[in-house]
Design a binder for these strands. Structure first.
Lengths: 236, 236
DNA sequence: CGATCGATGATTGCATACAGTATTCTGCAT
DNA sequence: ATGCAGAATACTGTATGCAATCATCGATCG
């Protein structure tokens, strides 16, 4: 049948991308890169004009941003960029450690050689970014690597939950990305090897250490600069 | 100052409850109790009329239901009640076990005598419901108990994440609530004792067993009635 | 008789308009 | 000068209207 040639098999064909999705992406980006600061009041009309859409898609995006933990939604007052407390950060890191440890274990059980090759690719990208000293790129590469391990766990629920936590962690610990870079990426390499060997116990243990190190390092940094830079504390 | 008498000190005073919240609650209720069946197409206009509001709050609620995993949102086609696959259920149970095990551990470290008393209250409620044979009430009591343990973990992120998973699990395993009731509530009692004793290791281990038992039982039930009742499999 | 194409109805996505509420500013009394 | 009262303002919450898109059904052609 040469009548249906062009369509190969790549999933549900391109649906018209809903505007709310674009708005959602735009706003998360603005929050992550700091254009919208914690505690800042997000006025729907302003955002609407800035992004060139009406208030409706803005509101729908804000709903999603709320459940994802990016903004707080106070009735009759509107949306405010979420201000994380140090306590919340430590809790987030704690939960992240739990979930990632599990995903590393499952990844070691399911990964194929092709998957492992992809992991090494991401590892190289991270090391490159580290050498270049680009904190932004380091954090992103880190998220990509961890995210891929998540996928390899073959657990859709995990893969759906972890980014919710991880993207926020990513945002919080931007400032510490560079200093801990070297150690972190060495640990990554060990984890990948464990996954490649199909050794669940080892992968789990290594990831446990890795996340613990990251958490500890983060807490030290916080303690050192308590409240001064990077992280605002509490909201009124 | 007799001018401000009624307001005691219970947090932010009563804000006008947004309509979208009521809609959200109403729809989750309708999904859980089966009035809205998996795969069913949710037409905004119908829901709006049925609940006596306009389409706007409906849409906002649907956004939240989407991110919470209750409905699937297909662009230009609307909202459909999510159809869980057996695979997804097992993954959900797996993640729930992970999170609850952790929360039990932390609860044992933080619980006060007052907290424990509250746990025993909930336990009694569950046993009562069990005796009455009311599956609906059993499931609810179960969720309440687990939810309170979550709170005792003093980890806001956990407390926020677990219900996301747990409420869905609750929905899925309604059918098995009664048969496993007796064992489940015996295990609950042991867990509460461990928490009361402030024994994190024991609480963790007991919760691990408890969730594993539940998961196993669930999988058996599924295998027994494969696809026949209770759970629809896959969507087209 | 089956399949393809086109028309119709239904439904979503987006924009706009209106009403209710919180905040802020101004003026006044103390 | 300071504290309070009242009005004006700004923003959110909700409702409605319109255009674009998708699914369904019927007619036409092979």
């Amino acid at each position: 049948m040469p009548d249906t040639p062009a369509v190969t098999a790549r999933g549900p064909i391109a649906r018209p991308a809903p505007l709310r999705q674009a708005v959602y992406d735009a706003l998360t980006e603005l929050i992550i890169n700091g254009s919208l600061k914690p505690g800042q009041h997000l006025v729907e009309a302003e955002l609407a004009e800035e992004l060139g859409v009406s208030r409706q898609p803005i509101r729908e995006a804000l709903q999603r941003l709320h459940t994802a933990g990016w903004v707080d939604l106070r009735p009759s007052q509107g949306a405010f960029v979420h201000s994380p407390t140090t306590e919340e950060c430590s809790q987030l890191l704690s939960v992240r450690a739990l979930l990632e440890t599990r995903s590393a274990r499952d990844a070691a059980r399911h990964a194929t050689p092709l998957d492992v090759a992809r992991l090494w690719e991401l590892q190289r990208a991270g090391v490159t970014a580290l050498a270049a000293g680009d904190a932004r790129a380091i954090v992103e590469a880190n998220a990509d690597l961890h995210g891929h391990i998540t996928l390899l766990s073959r657990n859709a629920v995990l893969a759906e939950l972890i980014p919710q936590v991880d993207r926020r962690v990513r945002w919080y610990y931007m400032p510490i990305a560079r200093p801990r870079g070297q150690d972190a990426w060495n640990e990554h390499a060990l984890i990948i090897e464990a996954i490649a060997d199909g050794d669940p116990d080892l992968a789990e243990e290594l990831m446990r250490r890795h996340t613990r190190n990251t958490t500890d390092f983060y807490c030290q940094q916080i303690a050192a600069v308590t409240g001064s830079a990077g992280l605002p504390v509490d909201l009124p």
